[in-house]
Design a protein around this nucleic acid. Sequence first.
DNA 1: TGTACATCAGTGAACGCGCGTTCACTGATGTAC
DNA 2: TGTACATCAGTGAACGCGCGTTCACTGATGTAC
Lengths: 207, 207
Amino acid sequence: MTVRVQSKGEQTRKRIMDLAQDAVLQKGFAATSIDEIIAEAGITKSGFFYHFRDKNDLAKAMLQRYLDDEWTVFDGLFKQADELSEDPLHSFLIFLKLFADLMADLPNGHPGCLVASYVYSEHLFSRDVRTMTTEGHLIWRKRFGERLRRIAERYPPKTQLDLDDLADMLSAVADGGIILAKSLHNPMLLPKQILLYRSLIKATFLG
Amino acid sequence: MTVRVQSKGEQTRKRIMDLAQDAVLQKGFAATSIDEIIAEAGITKSGFFYHFRDKNDLAKAMLQRYLDDEWTVFDGLFKQADELSEDPLHSFLIFLKLFADLMADLPNGHPGCLVASYVYSEHLFSRDVRTMTTEGHLIWRKRFGERLRRIAERYPPKTQLDLDDLADMLSAVADGGIILAKSLHNPMLLPKQILLYRSLIKATFLG
DNA sequence: TGTACATCAGTGAACGCGCGTTCACTGATGTAC
DNA sequence: TGTACATCAGTGAACGCGCGTTCACTGATGTAC
């Protein structure tokens, strides 16, 4: 366990991003003002602009970090699952269970998907930020798709279905589950949707 | 076919709401300014405030209309489906096919779900608007849930599953499918997700 | 070890623009007698 | 049919506040010799 030593600047930058992300997930990017962030962070406005070239730069940095974190978390879950079973289907089922458990254990529920939030404010961001949301979704299609193809080899499904669609469905169910959970003020709806997806995967390949 | 005669005021009000909705689905509510709407609508700012008490009032009116329209559309699809089959499962499968076809036929793809957009800007709106998004989701859970229960009576599923979750899943897959389609710039991803949900429903109840 | 300089991590004040909202007013259309 | 009045559907000008951004400056820490 290495403790990453953060310089003072890195700490402040992280604090700004943490506070901004919370606000963005509650109100959207446009409604989150720099004034509000710096008030909470306890710095001045010029301090903010020392860390970020402009507001779009903050958006980009937040999204990059969000995508990296997501990758790290899922990577960890996949590794755990792979250690528990060599069979691709069972490993994937274990992964989905771990994923659902993780979402169920978040104290206040999932705070929201930054990618989804950005997609609904697409026109605010520069092209490179928009490209990042696209790439984010493509990576998960590829990642889940690979595993589904290995599963389909060993457990040929009776009804034929597009495995890329099935991979996309996990993203869709997660994004949709977060919206559902937020809208109905019930954090458990997200893990429940993931477990439902899991049981459909099970039924599809195990019949 | 009755042609609803709209007064001049009703026409302007509708035009404002149409333009506002397009903008909100592209940039979010906070980033959509009244100045921008009235420029497109060709009226003055005071003209806007003749029709809406304040900006939140516009948000409320748009959401109410969106929910009403959604209800009308789904109601029409359910009626069509019920005419084509008396069996609850087959009727629901027909409904899902009609729904997917409708989404596939939108020229530029689904412009976005206003409810989802609002959920990601929750803190901008007054309590009554937030309540409306909650109620919107609950209505669909009830509506789809009823049909699923009738299906489960006649076609008991082998694996036990929560029918409310399965009802919620349609909302989730639709919301998630819209995000996916927007993010990947491929309108067909939404109907594909709906059809995938359909084939999972089929597999679940028909085995 | 001491000194000179560079970089880091900000501060403080000012900027102009755009935002949502208000208010007094107005021409066109509709209604009552 | 003519006139008086009411309602509809806006206009025009002004408001103050908050927004993102810039710029010149500064004290603390790090590095080179």
